[in-house]
Measured scan of single mutants.
Amino acid sequence: KLETFPLDVLVNTAAEDLPRGVDPSRKENHLSDEDFKAVFGMTRSAFANLPLWKQQNLKKEKGLF
């Protein structure tokens, strides 16, 4: 399991300012399950079932792209 970080560490943070080991294209993977659901309004599995373009739009909207 990946290390999780608080939302404010990941949202609207440039790649070079992210904690070590965080993939800038997969910031959402480093949210706790609770934060993930609070941000996206759905579970990880529901998010994973969305088309890629919709996932990317949601990530942009939430500052996690």
Score class of each variant (00 low, 15 high):
residue 54 K to A: 12
residue 4 T to S: 08
residue 1 K to W: 11
residue 35 D to W: 01
residue 9 V to L: 14
residue 45 S to H: 15
residue 38 A to N: 13
residue 37 K to T: 14
residue 63 G to W: 02
residue 44 R to P: 05
residue 22 V to F: 02
residue 10 L to I: 04
residue 32 S to G: 07
residue 27 K to W: 05
residue 10 L to P: 02
residue 36 F to V: 01
residue 27 K to I: 15
residue 42 M to S: 02
residue 53 W to Y: 14
residue 12 N to H: 09
residue 22 V to G: 02
residue 17 D to T: 07
residue 5 F to G: 02
residue 48 A to E: 10
residue 5 F to D: 01
residue 44 R to L: 06
residue 25 S to T: 15
residue 49 N to Q: 14
residue 13 T to A: 10
residue 58 L to N: 01
residue 8 D to Q: 12
residue 20 R to M: 15
residue 17 D to A: 07
residue 43 T to E: 13
residue 34 E to K: 13
residue 43 T to W: 05
residue 16 E to R: 06
residue 58 L to G: 00
residue 56 Q to D: 12
residue 60 K to Q: 12
residue 60 K to A: 12
residue 42 M to A: 01
residue 24 P to H: 06
residue 10 L to Y: 02
residue 6 P to A: 07
residue 56 Q to N: 14
residue 3 E to V: 11
residue 35 D to Q: 05
residue 23 D to K: 03
residue 40 F to Y: 01
residue 50 L to S: 03
residue 14 A to P: 13
residue 24 P to L: 06
residue 33 D to T: 06
residue 8 D to N: 14
residue 35 D to G: 03
residue 57 N to S: 12
residue 9 V to I: 13
residue 61 E to R: 08
residue 59 K to F: 03
residue 65 F to C: 14
residue 60 K to P: 00
residue 58 L to K: 06
residue 61 E to L: 11
residue 47 F to C: 00
residue 56 Q to P: 00
residue 29 N to W: 13
residue 45 S to E: 14
residue 27 K to N: 02
residue 5 F to E: 03
residue 6 P to C: 05
residue 45 S to I: 13
residue 37 K to Q: 14
residue 58 L to Y: 06
residue 57 N to I: 11
residue 13 T to P: 07
residue 53 W to I: 11
residue 14 A to D: 08
residue 17 D to R: 04
residue 1 K to E: 10
residue 54 K to E: 12
residue 24 P to G: 05
residue 31 L to A: 00
residue 38 A to P: 00
residue 52 L to S: 10
residue 2 L to T: 13
residue 16 E to A: 12
residue 47 F to N: 00
residue 28 E to T: 03
residue 42 M to D: 00
residue 49 N to S: 13
residue 45 S to R: 11
residue 43 T to N: 13
residue 4 T to A: 07
residue 59 K to W: 03
residue 18 L to S: 04
residue 9 V to H: 05
residue 64 L to T: 01
residue 8 D to S: 15
residue 12 N to R: 05
residue 38 A to F: 15
residue 14 A to C: 12
residue 41 G to E: 15
residue 3 E to Q: 13
residue 11 V to E: 05
residue 15 A to F: 10
residue 33 D to V: 07
residue 49 N to L: 13
residue 32 S to R: 08
residue 8 D to F: 12
residue 17 D to E: 14
residue 47 F to S: 00
residue 5 F to C: 04
residue 62 K to T: 09
residue 8 D to M: 08
residue 52 L to W: 12
residue 34 E to Q: 12
residue 17 D to H: 08
residue 32 S to T: 14
residue 52 L to K: 12
residue 37 K to P: 03
residue 23 D to G: 02
residue 50 L to Q: 07
